[in-house]
Simulated scan of single mutants.
Amino acid sequence: MNQFIKENIDPKLAEFYDKHYTVLNWDLLNDKKYTYLGNKETKVCRFCGKDEFNGATFKKLAHAFPESIGNRCLATYYECDKCNEKFGKTIENDYANYMKFYHSISGIHGKKKIPEFISNDNKSKSVWVDDKYILTDTNEHCHCLIKGNSILYQSTAPTHTPMAVFKCFVKMAISVMPENNLKQFAKTIEWICNKKHENIFENKKLLCRYEMIPGYTIEYPCYFLYQRKGPKSLAIYPYMIFHLTYGNFSYMIEVPTQEDLHQSIDKIKFPPIPFKSSSAGILDLTSNKPVSDLQQTMLFHFDSSEEISIEHLPEKVKNAALIKK
Rank of each mutant, 00 (worst) to 15 (best):
Y153N: 04
Y251G: 00
C208R: 12
P178W: 13
T138K: 14
L234G: 01
I213L: 09
T156F: 15
Y210V: 02
K205P: 11
T161R: 06
I213P: 11
L234A: 05
I151R: 15
P256C: 10
Q258E: 11
Q184A: 10
N194C: 08
K196I: 14
G247Y: 08
Y210L: 02
E219W: 01
I200M: 14
T188M: 11
S150N: 12
E259I: 00
C168R: 06
K147E: 05
I213R: 13
P238G: 06
L152Q: 13
Q227M: 06
Y216R: 04
P214M: 12
Y223E: 05
T245N: 03
M240S: 05
K132A: 07
I253F: 06
Y226G: 02
Y226W: 14
V255I: 14
N203L: 07
L135C: 09
M240G: 00
K195H: 05
K187C: 03
T159L: 11
T245I: 14
I200Y: 11
W191R: 02
N181I: 00
I151T: 11
K204T: 06
T217P: 01
K187M: 10
P178T: 13
I146C: 03
Y220A: 13
K167D: 06
I236H: 03
P221F: 13
A164K: 01
Y246H: 13
E198D: 01
Y223C: 02
R209Y: 09
K196F: 14
N149A: 03
P158W: 12
T188I: 07
Q184L: 09
T138P: 00
T161M: 08
T161Q: 08
E179M: 15
S155C: 01
F249R: 11
I213V: 15
H160Y: 15
T136G: 01
S175L: 04
P231N: 03
T156W: 12
G230L: 09
K205I: 04
P214G: 07
I174W: 10
T138G: 02
M163C: 03
V176D: 01
P158H: 05
T161K: 07
I174T: 01
L244R: 03
T161C: 13
H243L: 04
R228L: 12
A235C: 09
Y210H: 09
T159C: 07
K195P: 00
V176G: 00
L234Q: 02
F185Q: 00
N194H: 08
H197N: 14
Y216A: 01
K183E: 03
N181S: 11
L244Y: 08
I146A: 04
N180R: 08
N199Y: 10
L182E: 10
L152K: 15
G148S: 07
Y133D: 05
F201T: 02
N181A: 02
T245K: 06
F224L: 10
T159I: 14
Q184F: 11
M252V: 15
L234M: 07
T138H: 11
P162W: 14
N199F: 02
P231S: 02
Q154P: 01
L207Y: 12
I213W: 15
K171E: 06
N203S: 12
E179W: 14
E254K: 00
H243E: 10
E259A: 10
K147S: 06
T245V: 14
D260K: 09
Q154R: 15
K183H: 07
C142S: 15
G215Y: 09
I253E: 00
L225E: 04
